[in-house]
Amino acid sequence: MPRKSAKSEALSVPETETIPAPPPVKKAKAPAKPRAKKADPAPVAAVAIAVEPTTEQVAEEAYLLWLSEGQPPGRDIEHWLLAEQIVRSRLSLLSAAVHSA
């Protein structure tokens, strides 16, 4: 029987022997990106908010005023102007409540 060389013996692996898998290669982490700081909200007093009622809101309020006073004739302008004040006041209070929360 011919003799195997030292190289071939070193390269041959018996069938019963398993070769361990190489350890997993760890990937280098990318440097963390700096996070942007959140801007501090402006104080409520510094924020100018335009509170304008819609025509529909004023018309509904004027109608309710007219009904509550017994449907008097000729006071439509008075009811309209009072309704504008009422609706603006409500919107202003609502806006202030939302911004202070």
Rank of each mutant, 00 (worst) to 15 (best):
D76I: 13
Q57W: 00
D40G: 04
I19F: 07
A50M: 04
D76L: 15
E60S: 09
A101F: 04
L64F: 01
A30C: 00
E9R: 14
P20C: 06
Q57A: 05
S8G: 00
P14Y: 07
T16C: 06
A6I: 03
R3F: 07
L81I: 11
E17A: 15
R35M: 02
A21H: 09
T16F: 12
S95H: 08
G74N: 15
Q57C: 02
V44N: 12
A45I: 15
A62K: 06
L93F: 12
K37V: 06
A21R: 13
P72W: 10
S95R: 08
I77C: 06
V13I: 13
S5Y: 05
Q57K: 02
V98E: 10
I49L: 09
I19S: 11
L67K: 13
V13T: 10
G70D: 14
T16S: 12
E15T: 08
E61K: 02
A97G: 14
A30W: 04
A39D: 03
A48V: 04
S92Q: 14
T16V: 08
V58M: 01
P14C: 11
V51R: 05
Q57M: 04
L81S: 07
A97S: 15
A59R: 04
K29W: 11
A39Y: 03
A62Q: 02
T55I: 00
R3I: 03
A42I: 06
P14Q: 13
E9F: 00
A46E: 08
A32L: 14
V25L: 07
H79Q: 09
R3M: 11
A97C: 10
L93M: 10
P2S: 02
K26F: 02
S95C: 10
Q85A: 12
V58S: 01
T18S: 15
L64A: 10
L82E: 03
Q85R: 12
P34N: 05
V47D: 01
E84F: 02
P24G: 08
R88G: 01
I49H: 03
A101K: 09
Y63R: 08
